Computed example of a mutant assay.
Amino acid sequence: MTLINSSTKGVFVIAVTPFTDNGALDHGSIDRMVDFYYDKGADGLTILGMMGEAPKLTQAESIDVTRRTIARSAGKPVIVGVSAPGLAAIGELTKAVMDLGAAGVMVAPPSNLRTDDQIIAYYRNVVETLGTDVPVVLQDFPLVTNVQISTRVLGHIFEAHDSIVMLKHEDWPGLQKITELREAEAKGRRRTSILCGNAGVFLPEEMRRGADGAMTGFAYPEMMVDVVRLSNEGQFETALDHFDAYLPLVRYEQQPGIGLAVRKYVLAKRGAIASAAQRKPGAGLNAAAIAEVETLIRRQEARLATFR
């Protein structure tokens, strides 16, 4: 399998982890989901992320999901989230998934990091633990991790470690961070791939600021594919038109606490997975929320009809 690098572009969908109604891994739905994402135009997948319920899996289950996803991906790149409280666990899972053919691993900073020096030291230790031959995605998601990483600190880390080839950009507000990173590259710092998250809520603007694509899990990945493609073609107004058609559902999915339930409900409705179940703790949508989502989908379909 091809490894990710500092020039990697496109849409890497953050995959959900499918479970049966009783909380067991649903292997059939893993296959169906992988096919669904690629059928909608994804360039690759990222599994075991924060919206993939990774902390609810055992180490053996994480390896099982990775093996199944890579096998079904038929050579397309799969990035695996390996974040954990300790470096030993990160190192063990990384070795296992890279041996299975992963394209790279994603590591978020632990929430106890408070100073720039601590952040810099942490990623130095990560690279020392994994080895310089493993491509790493640095996940910058302060809304969840509570770790604030400045562009200066990111630049220091990127310059120090060539194996950190990609930034998963999820700062909010964070558009200026993309601009500053690209300006630093124009002045001579090495290039780093930037793929953006936050369910794509700022994707058109992120692309105009210089992002290389999306790494998030909105249940209509074709929206992200269209926005990235049109942006790369310089058709920014058309990209916004496509984005606007999906915006109400993107907005609804941003609600803290129920965002994953919304995403899984829609994916199940679209046939990508058999069940919208989350592994406990984690609840589904109530009747009122389901009715709201159904209304948003119906209205979205009406808007999309104008593009057909």
Rank of each mutant, 00 (worst) to 15 (best):
F202M: 14
Q176M: 15
Q254P: 05
I290E: 03
S83E: 11
L285I: 01
D226N: 07
E253K: 03
T216I: 11
N146I: 04
G104P: 03
I30L: 08
R303M: 00
A239M: 03
M223L: 14
A268Q: 12
A54V: 10
Q139L: 06
A219Y: 12
P18K: 00
M223V: 05
D241L: 13
Q176R: 15
E170Y: 07
R67Q: 13
P55L: 08
V11G: 08
G271L: 11
G210D: 12
G49K: 07
I194M: 10
M50R: 12
V293D: 01
N286F: 01
S73C: 00
L247F: 14
A96E: 11
K264W: 03
A199S: 10
T46V: 12
G284P: 09
P204G: 01
I273N: 01
T306M: 14
P85K: 08
P55I: 03
A96Q: 08
P109E: 00
K9V: 11
I157R: 15
G23E: 14
G23Q: 15
P110E: 01
G10F: 07
D212L: 02
R251T: 07
I120A: 05
V65I: 11
D117R: 04
R263Y: 07
R229C: 03
K9L: 14
Q176C: 15
Y252S: 08
A274Y: 02
R263A: 14
E61N: 02
L285F: 03
S193E: 07
V82E: 00
A186M: 12
L48I: 04
T295G: 10
L45S: 09
V126Y: 13
T151E: 15
I70Y: 14
N5Y: 10
T145H: 10
E128S: 06
Y252A: 06
V65E: 08
